[in-house]
Design a protein around this nucleic acid. Structure first.
Lengths: 246, 246
DNA sequence: CGGTCATTTGAGCGCACTCAATACTCGTGG
DNA sequence: CCACGAGTATTGAGTGCGCTCAAATGACCG
């Protein structure tokens, strides 16, 4: 195994800023636009991994299915994300549309070929891979030792940042996924997710208005209940001596 | 985010086979050998990430510490592993010696510079990164929805494969880590790990002899209790139609 | 307005956790 | 070689968080 440790945020913002001009998405521009509606599956876990996909609008969930029916969602994708980067013969997970999705596809061969001529994009690819490793490790920490409330608060904050970045009203969380999706992402049941949201609303921290949007009333309380918020803690870090004991 | 899906096994075996001749380890060969003993910390979470490390012998644990004292082990490293690959300013985790460890180090700059001249090694690096992403996602599935017994059986099988690959006697699991390390890796408590091992031994599946080695008596039972074993299921897959419903 | 699906709410249970005590391992020194 | 001590592991008792099963309510669409 190779343990890595990558410059997530700065590079991510960089790629976000240059997307459409220099991002990996440019490699898909000659492909025709395809569409999927809520519940449609772009590709299945186990399918031959022939293509990569660039999401242009809408949202996807990335799922892994256990043979007994249990499901884990390992991530949610949205505009400007790329999915299917792979050296493996078959996809290790399914990609399913949460709502109306439009995307472009590209064969693996053509993608790799174009990449050979673009050292700058190779670096972007690497940085996004790194981002993914870091995200996966954060998720491992969350799943390994956090309570239901901590998990949900963490998730809601993450979503709040995404929503604000996408231009939603301040303090409004946009949730394109269902409660069941959230549960499968956080390693909880749908009932526990629901109960926890209700509890937070009862404490005046949230106001769960409609199904797919939640208003945050006390962000500070949310941060506190999330335990140490990964995002805010791992970000700046330019000075030494941090939070560990020994 | 960028969701990836990589050719884990074949590439891994390739890198294992060529290690010492063409692997990433060659980039460390001019460095002097350093040593650490059990409990020593090679680098801390939060330290400036200046170096990469190539493990030459012994075992390490990779830890993340939460500010309230909880700890998660995200992986174990051993001979021929590289740690510290990073575009980030600071390490996101600590690396601690489980036993007597010898390693070589290399600055990030020198590593990257040498890599520029070696497209073959760039590919190895990428493949190992992919391996790590796949491993992390397997772990997410394990942590999100498996019982204590499933987790432990999964872990023991994983360790059994590693032990046999390293030339231990057949069906003997070598465990360089403590029960607490195992617990922090599997998202359990030390008591639950201990109880589960006792239970499996009582059922004649294991024989927990000394502290750091376990004899497997019924491997099939272990596989069955692990649920679907990720390794064996994700491996071959050359034919279509696999285990999902829809 | 009715039907379907998503969500909420309730009651009860069980797995894994916590706290606590005991037993084992292994290294060290008498 | 044995006795001792510190760290590690096992075992026991009891509890609680999140799960399961079940029913009611609410949202959305034709």
């Amino acid at each position: 195994m190779l343990a890595s440790n990558f410059n997530v945020r700065p590079l991510f913002e960089e790629t976000a800023a240059i997307n459409g001009r220099c991002g990996l998405g440019t490699l898909f521009e000659q492909s025709s636009l395809e569409h999927a509606t809520a519940g449609e599956i772009v590709f299945f876990e186990g399918d031959r991994a022939l293509h990569l996909f660039a999401i242009r609008s809408g949202n996807l969930r990335i799922c892994r299915q256990l043979h007994d029916g249990r499901r884990v969602i390992t991530g949610f994708l949205t505009k400007n994300d790329i999915v299917g980067v792979s050296f493996k013969n078959r996809y290790l997970y399914s990609a399913e549309a949460l709502d109306d999705v439009s995307f472009q596809r590209q064969t693996k061969g053509a993608f790799e070929k174009q990449l050979l001529a673009r050292p700058d994009l190779r670096r972007v690819l690497l940085s996004q891979l790194c981002d993914e490793v870091a995200t996966a490790q954060d998720q491992m920490v969350l799943l390994a030792c956090r309570s239901a409330e901590e998990r949900l608060c963490s998730f809601l904050l993450e979503r709040l940042h995404k929503s604000m970045a996408q231009g939603f009203e301040p303090n409004v969380i946009n949730l394109p996924m269902t409660r069941l999706d959230i549960a499968d992402y956080l390693g909880l049941t749908i009932e526990t997710v629901s109960r926890t949201i209700t509890k937070l609303a009862g404490q005046g921290i949230l106001s769960a208005g409609r199904r797919h949007s939640i208003l945050v009333l006390k962000k500070a309380a949310l941060v506190q209940r999330a335990g140490e918020d990964d995002a805010t803690c791992n970000d700046g870090l330019d000075d030494a001596t941090r939070y560990y004991r020994h």
